[in-house]
Amino acid sequence: MDLPKNRFKAALKAGHHQTGFWNTIAGPIVPEALAAQGFDWIVVDTEHTTTEAFQVHASLQAIAAYPDVSAVVRPVSNDPAYIKRYLDMGAQTLMIPYVQTADEARAAVTAMRYPPHGIRGMAGGTRASRYGLVKDYMTRAEEELCLIVQVETASALEQLEEIALVEGVDAVFIGPADLSGSMGHPGNQAHADVVAAIEEAFACLKAINVPSGILTLNEDFARRLISLGSGFTAIGTDISSLMRDVSALKARMD
């Protein structure tokens, strides 16, 4: 059996924009339903959610039923132990939160790779290798692995180019929520200074030919960033969509 292809990584390299959605509700049902909508990518988030590592496995299986939809897993931190587990589960694209320096980006790269180029622990019978059927998995795995690093503070933005150009980093995701807080405007992602910082970051990444991405619930801002070169844009989260629609329904019935 051949090494599974990473459609998300291929689209990044080809410069095709990909529209995504955020899964925060634990369990496989919601990510499966989101995949059925036909988004290009679904984030299975374990940083700001109650989703535990063992639940990610079932979510990956659910999304896999839709071959045109890519799964992206966000670990709780830049932790080699979690990175190893999610890769063994078959996640091919990881989004690492709160990367502050080029050294931290290099640490994530190292955690993604097998020796002699990294520190990923070796296990033969995992879902990633199709339970051992991909015979050359350990020598070829990194060909189809994709590393996204999150840059989400004013301090990290000052080192954006150094972080983005670390060998093995495939894309940079700008985190607007934490960025707003670090800039003194917590929760106000629409503040002019925050918007300017995001747009400058996208311009920088475009200039150095590194794919950029973001999550924004503002549709106009999403379109603006796509026009500035966003390679992968998440346009909503499951819980925000649920609360918005339920609130609107309740208001109509009151």
Rank of each mutant, 00 (worst) to 15 (best):
N209M: 12
E162I: 00
L242P: 06
R106H: 02
M253L: 15
T93M: 09
D238G: 04
K84M: 15
L225Y: 01
S155M: 13
T46G: 07
I235N: 04
G125L: 14
H17C: 05
A154E: 13
Q150H: 09
S129G: 12
A222R: 09
L94N: 05
Y131M: 11
D220R: 10
G27K: 07
I96V: 12
R113W: 12
Q55V: 07
P80C: 09
E167F: 01
A207C: 11
E158D: 15
S180E: 12
P67A: 05
A197E: 10
E142C: 08
G231T: 03
T19D: 12
T51E: 11
L205W: 01
S155A: 15
G175F: 01
Q92C: 06
G213Q: 08
H17W: 00
R244A: 09
D245N: 14
L157A: 08
I174H: 05
V194A: 15
A11H: 05
V30G: 03
A62E: 05
L205G: 02
A11N: 15
L249G: 15
L133E: 15
A14R: 12
R113Y: 05
T233F: 06
V194D: 13
T24Q: 11
F8R: 00
Q61M: 11
L34F: 02
D178F: 03
L12S: 00
L34N: 00
Y86W: 03
D2G: 00
F21N: 03
P116W: 07
R106G: 06
L87F: 02
E162Y: 00
S129M: 04
V169G: 09
A248N: 10
Q92E: 12
E47F: 00
A10D: 12
E142T: 05
I63S: 02
A141L: 12
G27Y: 02
V169Q: 04
E104Y: 01
L87P: 09
R252I: 07
Q18V: 04
